Amino acid sequence: MGDGRHQSQRDSTGTAEFSGLKALFLNCTLKRSPELSHTDGLVELSRSIMAQQGVTVEILRPVDYAIATGIYPDMRNHGWDQDAWPELYQKVKAVDILVLTTPIWLGEKSSVCTQLIERLYANSADTNDTGQSVYYGRVGGCLITGNEDGAKHSAMNILYSLQHLGFVIPPQADAYWVGEAGPGPSYRDPDSGGPENAFTQRNTQIMSWNLMHLAGMIRHAGGIPAQGNQRD
Rank of each mutant, 00 (worst) to 15 (best):
G228I: 10
P62T: 07
D129Y: 13
G140D: 02
L60Q: 13
H220C: 05
R47P: 14
N27V: 07
S33E: 12
T127W: 06
R231N: 08
N197Q: 11
W209F: 12
A226C: 12
Q53A: 15
P183S: 06
L26Y: 01
A215W: 01
A84P: 01
L21F: 03
Q132C: 10
P86F: 02
N197I: 03
L162S: 11
Y89W: 10
R231M: 15
W85I: 02
I117L: 11
H220T: 08
G194T: 00
L214F: 08
G20C: 03
G41N: 05
I144Q: 11
V43M: 05
Y160V: 12
R202C: 10
A198L: 04
M75A: 04
A84K: 03
D126W: 03
L30T: 08
A23K: 06
G70K: 09
G150Y: 01
S133W: 13
Q82L: 11
P170Q: 09
T39G: 08
L24W: 02
V112K: 01
S12Y: 12
P185Q: 07
V55A: 08
L42I: 13
N157S: 15
P225I: 08
E87F: 06
M50A: 15
D74L: 04
K91T: 06
Q227K: 13
G223C: 10
G146K: 00
L42Q: 07
L162V: 06
I104L: 14
P171H: 09
A173S: 14
P62W: 06
Q115S: 05
I224A: 07
D189M: 00
A16N: 05
V95L: 11
Q115K: 12
D191T: 00
G41W: 00
K22W: 01
R76F: 00
A173V: 14
V43N: 15
A226K: 14
N197E: 11
I218Y: 04
L24F: 01
